[in-house]
Every structure is written in C-alpha cells, then in structure tokens.
Design a binder for these strands. Structure first.
Length: 428
RNA sequence: GUGGGUGUAGCUCAGUGGUAGAGCACUGGAUUGUGGCUCCAGGCGUCGCGGGUUCAAUUCCCGUCACUCACCCCA
C-alpha cells in the first residue's frame, strides 16, 4: 500500500461518523440545557502556552507534544483543550464582559503516545469550562451533568471518583509533606517514582507499581493538610453530590497529569462496552489560578474533557436510525433523465432520494435498492414513459402500483412519511 | 520509550516443506424488465518485506516493518 494514515490517526468512515454525530448531538443538547455555548479555538497554539499551563514536568509536555518550528515560532498541536480556551478567554477579555462564562468545545487533540485501545495520537475531546464561579455548587452540577449524559447514552458501569488538591497553599504544604514522607523510602520506590519524588511527589500516589502502592498506603492524606476553606469546599461538593443523587467515591490518590488543577478533581470511568484498560471517560477539575497565570485576573474556573473514542467504545453497538430513502431505478437514458428531475423535486420536499447511475438489469438495481435499505423504489422504463407513469414499489410491504408521473411525488411522500416514525434529528 | 500477540483474497479467518482454501461481501445468471430466501457461476491473492537453511518455503531460522494489546501516562 502506497499511503497509509499516520500511526495513531484514524479515518472515520461514513458508517461510523453516524454514531459520532449522534454522540455529539446528545452532548451538545445536554450542555445547552446547562447554559453552555460553543467556543472554537485554533488547533495550533504557541508551544509556550502548553508548557506554561500544563506544566513543565508533565508527561504531556515532556514527550507527547507535536511541536514544530515555523519561522521563528515554536508551535504545537494542542494536546488538550483547556489551555487554548483560557488563552482565548484572557486574550479577548471575556471576564470584563460577563461575570460567568460557560463554554464548551468539541474537536481533535494530539498526543504522540503509543496508541492502544481507547488511546490515539489524534483523538477527539468534548469539554466544558466554567469561568467566574468558584464552586462548589458548580462543581457538583458539572459532575452530575456528566453522569446524566452518560446515562442518556446508555452507558453503565460508571464510577465517579473525586478528590481535592486544595488551593495553592494547601498544595504546597502537601507537596512538602509527601516529600518528607517518601524520602526515607526512596530506595524502595520504583525508578520512575524516584524520579518524581522531588519534582512532583503527587504522581507517586497513583503509581500502579505494587511497591509504590504499598508505600503510598502510609502516605499522609491531603484531607489532613487542607486548610479550612479547602475542606469546606470539598465537603460542600460531597454534600451537593449526595443531594443530586450522584453516587461517587472519594479517592485520595486521584491525581491528574496536568499541573494546573486546584481543589476539586474528578474522573469518571466505566466498565461498559468494549473499553480496554484505558477506561477513563472523562477527567476534570478546578483550575482557579490558570486564568491568572496566563495573564488574566484572578478568575476561578472548572472544566472537564471527555474522550469521544472512549465514549463510543463504551456504548454497546446501537442501531442507527436513518431517514427513509426513495431509490430510482431507471431503465435506459430517457428514464434516467426523467428520474433526475423527479428525484430533485423530491429532495426539495426534504426527502432522501438516490438515483442509480450504473444501469444494469432491473434485478441488480433492485438488489442495490435493498442493499442501501431503501424504503421504496421507483421503476421507470420505456413502457412506463410511454404512458407517463412509473412503478412505485413499497420495498417493505412487497407491493407495487403504477402511478402517473404527475401523481408520483404525492404517492412517494405519503409512503416515506408514514414509515418515518422517527422525527428528524431523533437520536439513538 | 518498554514488553506480549498477530501479519494468508475487500472483510473474518483456516492451512501445508513441494508455489493456497472456507465463510461473508461483491459481480453475473436461474422468465429478453422486478428486490431481501435459495441455487449456480466468476475474480482471485507479490501468503507484510528482506535475507538464510533446503532440491524446494507461504509453511523452518534471523532481521525488519506494520498492526494490535498492555505498561508508562492520560480522555
């Protein structure tokens, strides 16, 4: 094969795109009800934006970015959506125009990781960001919204995990506490964890290495290091979730790989469908300092990103509803030309029509009509043209009738309409 | 970056040291203009690529590439 797609970047063929669009439509409708509006930002941003926001010592920045030089600029394909959104929020001084902004986005992200099930180099995320609301009510609402969204898609086996990193002060203190705790055990830690010890001891907590886990068990809990406001925030979040009836689990070892998070942290995973080990459907949390760090005022914010591919893996194969199609099977050129006109008129009324352009025997034409799942077929040949008529076949009922061309449009409309039990745009 | 698995017709896969098969799909036919079932027929594949062993390799060995799953990390 001469050309193939870049490793980890996939073609999404029309068959699959249908499912994508359904998921996207449910997402858009869900967030719309919560007051979010879409924002679209560039896929390419200055490299420094990601280094600054995600953090220098993160895996994403260290080894997963698609970075290239263009003239004197270092540019990077966005590895996540929050940095660009916040950049836009600050650059366009949105904070000066409205106290609270609720944004959502949908689009491709790029990370140069080794691909595996549920993880690709170009992958799609849908995400929300709320600026100007310090929570914790908005935190709970966001998590609850996500759970509702998953339910609507029929995804079960959900697990909601939350944690808090505390504010800047708490986080600093906790870092120190962890270092102090781990240092004596440094020898026993995995090589990877040892490397993290001084730089980002939080990451040791979520190591899957048995030795690290064993040692982490005795590590101080952030709950003991949190100051009063942090604690109140977290407790209010839990209380809100309970009130909303959203089951959750507190996981003190839940940590994100992006540095900008503060306070509330959450992740929702599922065991549904064909998900592999990469089963986190969504991750998110607060980033109360990021707007400020990127040059804006001190505006608190919270957001999440969910992986569309993983969502699709989690959703059991579901039948897709398609609009009924009227298939034209013309026999000969005069009939074909007539079909073009008839089909166009039908489309102007909002119906899907397909005209066979290959010719062939009537048998093959009808087989084709079946193959695409057409609701009805219009057969026009010389004898039909001779008396200004056509044969309208109901492919579901196995009936057919001869209809004059002037009455054909009405007859087809009646047929297609009665079979169309799904309203346009109805989902899954 | 590290490990494991796999690489044979469009797809899913069998298979043998003597140059290869099934099912599905596709195309055509079974009344010269009538469908989803059935029946018949048809195409065929550099058996991932390169090297080695051998009289002979798709089948054995080595390398390489690709895909895939997992680790790391994340959505």
């Amino acid at each position: 094969m001469a050309f193939r797609a870049v490793k980890g970047m996939n073609d999404i063929l029309p068959d699959e795109v249908q499912r994508w669009q359904q998921v996207e439509a449910v997402f858009r409708e869900t967030v719309r009800l919560y007051g979010y509006s879409e924002v679209r930002t560039p896929i390419v941003e200055p490299t420094s934006l990601f280094v600054r926001s995600i953090g220098e010592n993160t895996d994403v920045v260290d080894k997963e970015m698609y970075t290239f030089e263009r003239h004197d600029d270092s540019l990077t394909l966005r590895p996540e959506g929050t940095a660009g959104a916040v950049r836009a929020y600050v650059e366009r001084t949105v904070y000066a125009k409205e106290p609270v902004s609720r944004w959502y986005y949908l689009g491709p992200m790029f990370r140069a990781e080794r691909p595996q099930r549920g993880r690709y180099r170009q992958f799609y995320q849908a995400g929300c960001e709320v600026y100007g609301d310090k929570g914790p009510n908005s935190d709970a609402e966001m998590i609850s919204m996500l759970v509702g969204f998953f339910h609507q898609l029929g995804i079960d086996g959900l697990e909601v995990m939350i944690n808090s990193l505390g504010g800047t002060d708490t986080r600093k203190r906790y870092h120190e506490a962890l270092k102090e705790y781990f240092r004596p055990h440094a020898e026993s830690l995995s090589a990877h964890a040892q490397g993290r010890l001084e730089v980002n001891p939080l990451r040791i907590l979520d190591s899957k290495d048995p030795k690290d886990q064993e040692i982490s068990r005795g590590a101080p809990s952030i709950l003991n290091v949190m100051d009063a406001p942090d604690r109140e925030h977290f407790e209010a979040l839990c209380s809100n979730l309970q009130a909303l009836g959203t089951p959750f689990r507190i996981d003190g070892r839940l940590v994100r790989g992006l540095d900008y998070y503060t306070r509330t942290l959450f992740e929702i995973s599922s065991t549904a469908g064909e998900l592999g080990t990469q089963n986190a459907l969504v991750g998110g949390g607060r980033y109360d300092n990021l707007v400020h760090e990127l040059g804006g005022p001190q505006v608190p914010a919270i957001g999440f990103a969910l992986g569309i591919e993983r969502l699709l893996l989690a959703i059991a194969q579901q039948p897709v509803s398609a609009s009924p199609v009227c298939f034209f099977a013309p026999l000969g050129n005069p009939a074909a030309q007539r079909s073009l006109i008839l089909a166009r008129d039908l489309r102007q009324q909002g119906f899907v029509a397909e005209v066979d352009g290959r010719g062939g025997s009537l048998k093959s034409l009808l087989r084709r009509a079946d193959a695409i799942g057409a609701r009805c077929a219009v057969v026009i040949g010389d004898s039909e043209l001779a008396n200004d008529s056509a044969i309208l076949k109901d492919l579901t009922r196995h009936t057919q009738e001869s209809v004059t061309l002037s009455a054909l449009s009405d007859a087809i409309r009646k047929l297609l309409t009665e079979s169309n039990t799904l309203s346009p745009g109805e989902l899954i």
